[in-house]
Amino acid sequence: MNKEIYYVIAFDSTHHAIKAEKKLKERKVDIKTIPTPREITASCGLSIRFSGNFLDNVKDVLSSDTFNIKGLYRFLKTKDKKIVEKVKL
């Protein structure tokens, strides 16, 4: 069965998402900037996506500065469905 688990942090501001991406890339944390998934919000924001093993790195970098974060979400994607769960940052 094709199962994929990943985390997404959605930002309230595009500028903050860009700033976070820069900081994370500087620290060589493997993340990807993606459009905020519809499951989180219908508005057209930006999010960063990463796998669970980078969760601590991401939290670490994000706590080093102020970011307007909408939330951290865990995605579980299988062939025919997507389960999204908001988790504590």
């Binding site: 595009t14 860009i18 990807k32 900037t33 993606i34 459009p35 930006l46």
Partner: peptide, 14 residues
């Protein structure tokens, strides 16, 4: 340009 690159990345990912 900065935004354009981000949007393109987002487009291809989507």
């Amino acid at each position: 340009d900065e935004l354009g690159k981000i949007l393109m990345k987002g487009y291809i990912y989507t």
